[in-house]
């Protein structure tokens, strides 16, 4: 905080604004943008991993596995993400603690569900109640990432499932003709070749993921929406040095600009990536590149 901010009531105009925008609370708001970016950075590969797993399961020759994969894709995609977010975090948390409880406290003689209470032994708590605050925060964040990854993994699975089917059959047959085992074909041909078909769907998914981050506050993470609401609300002089009216509109305008800028940058970056992936591919765009170079 700036040194001159000790008496904000005496300030006006830009000086007041400068002090106002550098309060500890605003710093937390700016930090929340970092939280959102961090979440995206971790969730995207995690969701891709879930998606890959789901797609492989759905393609499986073994019927129950295939049903499992297809069921995961269908159920998660059939439900609005918000409905998942509202109870998934508590459910995941209880599931983990329940499993740990079974493993760590075999001698526990009280029921785990005591009426409404969900009580596990102290050793099974996640994180341990003696853990420092940052562990609790990271755990909460981790649960949020996992929830996002499960939900968006289903969409990614659907895209990858389609992309695997889109790889030209001739390429697979050629691989078989060279004597590759199914496993080798999968690893050396199918997976490397599918990305160009998956990218349009995945880029859309990335855009969707960006736009789902305002729901983060439902998962108990204090994100930019939480802070925008908190900061923008009317403040009475009794509890703050910077009383103001209802400024939520301006804070939400800032969020709007942030998201527009972020999606625009993503669009440009993804278009470049697509150009590189298309290089040398047996598609219309790949053919066009070849002709332009020749």
């Amino acid at each position: 905080m700036l040194g001159s901010c000790s008496d904000p009531a005496a300030l006006d105009g830009l000086a007041w604004l400068a002090c106002y925008l550098t309060t500890g609370k605003h710093m937390a708001f700016y930090g929340a943008f970092g939280t959102v970016l961090l979440l995206l950075a971790i969730t995207a590969p995690a969701a891709l991993a879930f998606g890959f797993g789901g797609a492989v399961l759905a393609r499986s020759q073994i019927a129950p596995l295939s049903w499992l994969g297809k069921g995961y894709i269908a159920i998660v995609r059939g439900v609005p993400d918000i409905a998942f977010f509202l109870f998934f975090v508590i459910a995941l948390d209880q599931a983990f603690e329940f499993l740990r409880h079974k493993a760590l406290c075999p001698g526990w003689n009280q029921p785990i569900w005591q009426g409404n209470d969900f009580v596990v032994c102290n050793e099974a708590k996640l994180p341990l109640s003696s853990a420092p605050q940052w562990v609790h925060e990271s755990y909460g964040f981790g649960l949020a990432v996992l929830t996002f990854a499960i939900v968006f993994g289903a969409f990614a699975a659907n895209v990858l499932f389609g992309a695997m089917r889109a790889v030209p059959h001739a390429q697979i047959e050629t691989a078989e003709a060279y004597g590759m085992t199914p496993r080798q074909t999968f690893r050396r041909i199918l997976v490397p070749q599918m990305w160009v078909y998956a990218l349009p769907g995945l880029s859309n998914l990335w855009m969707v993921l960006i736009k789902a981050t305002p729901l983060l506050f439902l998962l108990g993470v204090e994100d930019i929406v939480y802070w925008a609401r908190e900061l923008g609300g009317t403040k009475t002089p009794q509890f703050t040095d910077y009383p103001h009216g209802d400024w939520r509109m301006w804070y939400f305008l800032a969020l709007l600009v942030f998201y527009l800028a972020f999606t625009r940058v993503s669009e440009i970056a993804l278009a470049r990536l697509m150009t590189r992936l298309t290089h040398g591919q047996a598609t219309v765009a790949g053919e066009a590149q070849r002709k332009a170079a020749a």
């Binding site: 309060t23 500890g24 609370k25 009794q238 509890f239 703050t240 040095d241």
Partner: peptide
């Protein structure tokens, strides 16, 4: 979010 019972002050 419920002053004066509990709220977040300027320092966050």
């Amino acid at each position: 979010a419920y002053p004066p019972y509990n709220f977040i002050n300027d320092a966050g």
